[in-house]
Amino acid sequence: ISVKPNTTPLAEPAGAGAVEPLAVELGELEKKVEVLEKIAETGGKVSLTEAEVVVTGGRGMGSAEAFKMIEEFADLLGGAVGATRAVIDAGWRPYAEQVGQTGKTVQPGVYFALAVSGAVQHQAGMNKSKVVVAVNKDPDAPIFKETDYGVVGDVHQVLPAMIEEVKKLKGA
């Protein structure tokens, strides 16, 4: 069985268990597989799937350069950066940040969807978030059906104001 992370809530332990060693012989399979390199993700950033706050940017951000605001906002909130498939396909962000059906599934306490239209495939990756805040200039964007708080407006005007307010609250 395989389960995509963060798609179901953790179950309570049913009782005590025991760990028993199991000897496994792979035989011919060992000869067919060779590990060339192991690369660990580093950088001290918050893991997207474990973050309590996720700040996701969509195609409406307009450019890879505009994601610096997303990064700043996520850093101020101690959160992780996410992106939509359109952003990944455009090469603005790495695949590891993709939220959605073909990306990561997240369940943060707060999910910010900034310039995200909210296609069904994207919603599949974030719809278990506890609180969803969206900013989009289209009042009919599907993301607003999933939000607890929504702002109809230009993200390039709203996000800088949000960043400044968080800085004021933090005394920065």
Rank of each mutant, 00 (worst) to 15 (best):
L26E: 09
G27R: 02
G27V: 01
E28G: 14
L29Q: 09
L29D: 04
L29F: 11
L29I: 11
L29S: 09
E30W: 10
E30V: 11
K31E: 14
K32A: 05
V33F: 13
V33Y: 09
V33K: 01
E34P: 01
E34M: 09
E34V: 03
E34A: 12
V35N: 06
L36Y: 14
L36E: 04
L36N: 12
E37M: 13
E37R: 15
E37L: 05
K38S: 15
K38T: 09
K38W: 15
K38F: 05
K38P: 09
K38R: 11
A40V: 07
A40M: 05
E41N: 12
T42A: 08
T42M: 07
G43Y: 01
G43I: 00
K45H: 10
V46E: 14
S47V: 11
S47Q: 12
L48W: 07
T49G: 01
T49I: 01
T49A: 05
A51C: 13
A51P: 06
E52R: 15
E52P: 09
E52H: 15
E52T: 12
V54I: 02
V54E: 06
V55M: 04
V55N: 01
T56G: 06
T56A: 15
G57D: 10
G57Y: 07
G58D: 03
G60M: 00
M61W: 07
M61G: 10
M61Q: 08
M61L: 15
G62V: 07
